Amino acid sequence: MQIFVKTLTGKTITLEVEPSDTIENVKAKIQDKEGIPPDQQRSIFAGKQLEDGRTLSDYNIQKESTLHLVLR
C-alpha cells in the first residue's frame, strides 16, 4: 500500500509499505529516499509519536494515510 510522509519543509514523500511493516522499517525506507538517519526521525500520526517496534497496523495506518516527519 502507499502512504505519504510530509516533512516540515512541506515536501511529501510517497512510500510503498505493508500494514505489517514496523515503524523502524518505514524510517529505513525514508532514509533510502531522503538520506535522513532513522535516529533523527520522529514520525507523528494523528497527533501521536510512533514507536519503532510497533507496526503500521498497530496505529491503524491505512493506505494513503499521511505521516508527519519531524527531525530531532
Results as ranks from 00 to 15, higher is better:
E64C: 11
I61M: 04
L67K: 00
T66D: 02
L71S: 09
T12C: 12
I3R: 01
L8I: 12
L15T: 00
E51M: 10
V70M: 10
E18K: 13
D58N: 04
A46T: 04
A28R: 15
G53V: 07
D52N: 10
L56Y: 03
V26A: 00
F45M: 05
R72S: 12
I3E: 00
L69Q: 04
L71I: 12
E24A: 15
G10I: 04
T22H: 02
K48N: 10
A46I: 07
P19K: 07
L15D: 00
V17F: 04
Q62K: 11
D21L: 04
V17Y: 03
D32R: 11
I30G: 02
S20M: 09
L69T: 02
N60Q: 08
K6C: 15
V17W: 02
D32C: 10
P38N: 09
R72D: 09
R72C: 09
R72E: 10
M1H: 03
P37Y: 09
E51K: 07
S43D: 07
K33C: 07
E24D: 08
S65D: 14
G47I: 04
E64N: 15
L67G: 01
K6A: 06
H68M: 13
V70P: 01
D39W: 14
G47H: 07
G53D: 12
F4M: 04
K11D: 07
H68L: 15
E34K: 05
Y59L: 05
R54W: 09
T22W: 04
A28C: 06
Q41V: 15
I36T: 08
K29V: 04
M1T: 02
P19E: 07
L56V: 06
K48S: 09
I36Q: 06
I13G: 01
T9V: 07
T12H: 06
D52L: 06
K6V: 14
D39F: 10
M1E: 01
F4N: 03
N60G: 14
S65Y: 08
R72T: 12
Y59I: 02
S20T: 12
E51C: 10
Y59D: 00
F45C: 08
F45S: 04
G35H: 07
D52C: 07
G53H: 14
I61K: 01
I13H: 04
I36K: 06
G53R: 08
I36S: 06
R72K: 12
A46D: 13
D21E: 09
I23K: 01
R72F: 12
S43G: 13
I23Q: 00
G10T: 02
F4Y: 13
D21N: 05
E18W: 12
I44C: 14
D39M: 09
S65L: 04
I44M: 12
N25A: 13
K48P: 04
Q62N: 08
E51V: 08
S43F: 15
